[in-house]
Computed example of a mutant assay.
Amino acid sequence: MKKLICLLLLIPSLMACSQDNSAPEQVLVQSIGEHERCHLCGMMITKYPGPKGTLQLKNTDISPKFCSTRDMFNFALQPENQRQISHLMVHDIGTTDWEKPNDSAFIDATKAWYVYGTSRKAVMGSAVASFATKESAQTFAEEFGGVVLQYKQITLGLLAGE
């Protein structure tokens, strides 16, 4: 009888192990504090206009933040950093203020659209403006100049002006 009871108690545990627990990983975007500094250049992040970026490193709670999407890309596209990153987030500048982007407007950087070469300035000169939709990016590019790009088209060479 004891063996039967033990077996009955063991079955739910075994069933739990066999269930598919592949629920999508939730991304927790950490807000950028007023006194935080850019992970790449050390400048005060919120002191300057334009979209910002943040990322999550794998297997850690470390979430570097950047004063511009340009700095975020310059860090994230380095081969030694690429394999360490689990998530990249940028401000959707189509839904938030250019001068002081709100962190509730963070979107997945890999799904965003970008305007490169715009006349709008950010902390490090010309911004790499980020948008949730292609239409928003095109409207911005028509007004402020630049070319509309997808995430995969942003390269270190492009950022270096090559």
Rank of each mutant, 00 (worst) to 15 (best):
A76H: 15
K3Y: 12
L10S: 10
F131N: 00
Y151K: 05
L158F: 04
Q138C: 04
I62H: 12
I93D: 01
A105W: 09
S104I: 14
S136Q: 07
F73D: 05
G161V: 04
F144D: 03
Y48T: 07
N21T: 14
K3V: 12
A132H: 11
L9C: 15
S104G: 10
P79Q: 04
T155R: 01
V148A: 04
A112H: 13
S136L: 04
M43Q: 11
L9V: 09
S136F: 00
V128G: 02
F75C: 03
W113A: 13
W98Y: 10
L156G: 11
G53E: 08
M72Y: 09
T69A: 06
D92N: 11
G125F: 09
S18K: 11
F140S: 02
K134I: 03
I45D: 04
Y116R: 10
N59D: 12
H87Q: 05
K2M: 13
Q150E: 12
L7V: 14
K58S: 08
H87A: 08
A112N: 15
K65V: 08
N59M: 08
Q82G: 06
N81S: 08
T46W: 01
T133F: 08
R37Y: 02
I11R: 12
F73P: 01
L77M: 01
H39F: 14
A141R: 00
H87D: 09
L14K: 05
Q78P: 03
M72F: 11
A137S: 04
I5E: 14
F144A: 01
L158R: 00
L4S: 00
M124F: 00
N21C: 12
Y114R: 14
E34P: 06
I62F: 15
A105T: 10
G117K: 10
D103M: 02
R70A: 11
C41L: 05
T133E: 03
I45Y: 07
M124A: 02
K100N: 10
Q26H: 14
A160E: 12
K134S: 01
M15D: 08
E99K: 06
L149Y: 11
Y116C: 15
F144Y: 13
C6T: 14
I154M: 02
T96P: 02
Q30E: 04
L156K: 15
K52L: 00
G50E: 00
K3M: 05
T46R: 09
S130H: 03
Y116V: 13
P49I: 03
E135C: 07
V147T: 08
M43Y: 09
S130E: 01
A16P: 04
C38S: 04
A16Y: 14
H87M: 06
V148N: 06
E99V: 02
D97I: 10
A16N: 06
Q26E: 14
F73A: 07
E80Y: 13
T69R: 03
V148M: 06
F73E: 00
